[in-house]
Amino acid sequence: MTTVPHDQTRGDSTAFFRDLQPAPLSRNEVASLCTKAARGAGMSWGMAEEAGFAAAWLVSHGVDGPGYLSAHLEQADGMAWSELCPTPTPGKWRNADGRTLCPIILGATICDHADLPQGAAAGRRIEFGPVGMPILLVPFLAYLAQARGLAIALSWPGGMARIGAGGTELSAAAALLGCKTLDLTLDAEPAAPGRPSAAPIPNAHTAAETIAILNAFAMRTTVPASEASRAGAGSALGDND
């Protein structure tokens, strides 16, 4: 990393992260880094923003979102949209080829369909089939639960997690959903509008190795400098006047 005079407000501060122990990142750092990493791993810019949203939401709820996202991106790297996206039909949203769904794409698409007949409304059940890194789905479902007054249950062979409007069950859900893949079914029921938990939770800690993986993905969105661009970006003069 080199810097030159008149180096101005950087987009990213996580590239400089060197701590030996896992440390808390700000939500802005998480959202910014994870958006770029997701884009670098092949998501569209708009979907990459959803990845940034999800990771930042998890961090602010005490869960290492960047860690889960980096693991997911390593797994999904280079896969085509058709291999990752759901095909929403009433009651069934499986991938057309029976593949494992991307939790970011699935979560964003669930939110997009909230007011549509195939969507996750009260009294409906939807089978997703296998979903990768299912903890990354939680921020989207928590949003939906709060915005639409729903209690959402995710179940899989041998287990179940609840995502309420308040997000209070999150730590229990996180322990269950923080795994590589689950064969998920969603059930939505009406619920009283929830309140976000009153006590602020300290941001989750993220390890330098995780940040290095995400930075490597993010660097795929950057362009090696040319002499022409260097000359134009700032002053080539010293700063001694």
């Binding site: 080199t2 180096d7 950087r10 362009v223 090696p224 400098a225 661009s229």
Partner: peptide
């Protein structure tokens, strides 16, 4: 518009003469 690998900051390139347009920022 692109982000430079060197400084991680936005820059403006000339499409006809510079590489990197496939990594254009939105």
């Amino acid at each position: 518009w692109y982000v430079s690998e060197e400084k991680l900051e936005p820059r403006l390139g000339e499409r006809a003469t510079e590489d990197g347009a496939t990594l254009e920022q939105p």
